[in-house]
Amino acid sequence: MEALLNTGSTIDEGRLAKGGSKYTDDYTKECAVCWMCAEDFTSLGCPEKVAVISRDRKYSVALSTKVTEAMRSGQVFIPRSIWANVVVEPDTFSTGSPRYKGSPVFVEPTDDVILSAEELVTKMYMGGK
């Protein structure tokens, strides 16, 4: 499914990030989550986990799903975090600020493991170092 990705704060994301708890399970449970509406969730086959993939298909991140009335069809939301930023469009349109809101992404059901923030940085960014 193609969707527009929105990222932003949630109160618990803020509480955990500011409280230095980025390497806790609570933080992963709060932020490694893809919000979508019931219609999109059903059309994806009601998956427990989805892979959100960047527009150029270079990057993909596994997340659990959350169904909510806050979203409209064709739009997904990930709390602002390292997971969300894996697939945020890096082009800044000559402003310096990437497209945290409204990046085009693909969403597909997946069985991949959801990485913790620490695993994500070591495996994906540090090449497993």
Binding site: A17, K22, S54, K58, Y59, S81, I82, N85, V86, V87, V88, E89, P90, P98, A117, V121, M124, Y125, M126, G127
Partner: peptide, 15 residues
């Protein structure tokens, strides 16, 4: 936490 805030291409190079 810059690594957390930037898109993957930039974060990879920062690492």
């Amino acid at each position: 936490d810059l690594m957390d805030h930037i898109p993957a291409d930039s974060a990879q190079y920062l690492a």
